[in-house]
Amino acid sequence: MRSPARLTTMAMLVAGAFALASLERVLPNPFPMIRLGLGNIMTLVAFGTLGVSGGVWVTAGRVGLVALLWGGLFSPATVLSAAGGAASLLVMVPLLLTGRFSFYGISMGGAYAHILGQLAVATLLYVRSAGLMALLPFMGAAAIATGILNAWVAGKLLARYPGGSGSRV
């Protein structure tokens, strides 16, 4: 189902996710280990407006664009970003499909999976020491908080989307 409206919406959401992810890279960050994950807001909105495949495409598009502009295709930053994106989708899509979780559960699960995926890949590929997992308490707590924040923002955005809140999946 490739209607022009759907394509346009998806393009807007990918652009928005890319802009938010870029903004986050430019903003000064006092805690390098903790990221807001603002790009995921657009993935959530895509879940709400375009369904499962929309969210998957918006995440993939964001990771790809960020890699092209900021990272270099196979740099560690890009590999970690892709690992985080893939892990978050692997959790968010099933949570969404159960139909039992709102944006809040999906967003928290996605944020948490994102850091777990990144820590796992960083440990296996780059550091080869389980010491990184010692960061989990800090990063986990931050992921829960940013997950809730992003869900709140995504809910506000979806409510203003033409067609209203709670669109079809």
């Binding site: 879940f47 979780f101 809040y104 559960g105 999906i106 809730i148 409510a159 709670g166 669109s167 999946v169």
Partner: peptide
């Protein structure tokens, strides 16, 4: 099905 934007009890359980 619809995606809910308000938190549900399952979200609390996940939290």
């Amino acid at each position: 099905m619809e995606v809910k934007t308000r938190p549900r009890i399952t979200d609390g359980a996940l939290l």
